[in-house]
Design a protein around this nucleic acid. Sequence first.
DNA 1: CCCTGAATTGACAAGCGTTCTCAATTGTCC
DNA 2: GGACAATTGAGAACGCTTGTCAATTCAGGG
Lengths: 142, 142
Amino acid sequence: MTSTEPDRTTVAPGVPGTRPTRQRRAVGEVLASFDDFRSAQEIHTLLGQRGESVGLATVYRTLQLLADAGEVDVLRSEDGEAIYRRCSSTHHHHLVCRSCGATVEVEGPAVERWTSAIADEHGYVDISHTLEIFGTCRACAG
Amino acid sequence: MTSTEPDRTTVAPGVPGTRPTRQRRAVGEVLASFDDFRSAQEIHTLLGQRGESVGLATVYRTLQLLADAGEVDVLRSEDGEAIYRRCSSTHHHHLVCRSCGATVEVEGPAVERWTSAIADEHGYVDISHTLEIFGTCRACAG
DNA sequence: CCCTGAATTGACAAGCGTTCTCAATTGTCC
DNA sequence: GGACAATTGAGAACGCTTGTCAATTCAGGG
Ligand SMILES: [Zn+2]
Ligand SMILES: [Zn+2]
Ligand SMILES: [Zn+2]
Ligand SMILES: [Zn+2]
């Protein structure tokens, strides 16, 4: 084999999903600017208002990356639309105002234990769970 | 005034959503034939296999009626699709096998108390909540 | 610097579940 | 039977999300 053969030892694949682009930075900034759950399209609009032009498809892709990385939480609104929020990285649940969207992160060690126990009891393994609380916050209740 | 005038005292409005039609009966029967969560389109297919022709829109409308009446539970699969199951009428949650869909209804008085307490603590009123547990059942885990 | 190539982007076109529209049909009650 | 609201079905419309693909951008290496 001669040296004409491409040197495959230099292939720096460059892991996808890690490149710090203008668009990803912008999405991150917008996510930091609100603390309730917003849809991808709302976030896309907020970006426009900030003068940051980011394609809708890119917004969806970026949110998916962040969700996979555990940097944003994803919920489904009652009509099935996905809504996103930057959250703390520890496992937690949400208390959400049905009217204004104000969100409180809550932890419930007892609930975690309970779900595990129930699953064990019925022979289910590899457990995950969803728990969200909806209500009307003090401000909205008047 | 003569008797030619229509007698408006006999208007029996006839409450919508209460008429026992062939289509509604068929949907009810199919719902009784499985005990995991199925999508509207799956239910529509099952109806076809039974020889009961029911329009897809009618399936959606009927499921919505039953859900409003509290006779079926509606969940959102991970990709946002609505899935339905005939359930007991008392408040409960679900332990669902991610692989085969086998479902167990579970009650958790402690969890109900916990959600109320959390809501009170933060001044939220008029509370509701969602809680679902996903895992792999014994049969699927092998 | 400049090159190379993979990663990323954006405009647009599907894809998919769900709802709407409206004329035709059906069930109820007189 | 007759009258009339409720219901149905076929298809169009809708809104969110994902796929397509050529053009662009970024990270390194030379
Ligand atoms: Zn969160
Ligand atoms: Zn509120
Ligand atoms: Zn938890
Ligand atoms: Zn149930």
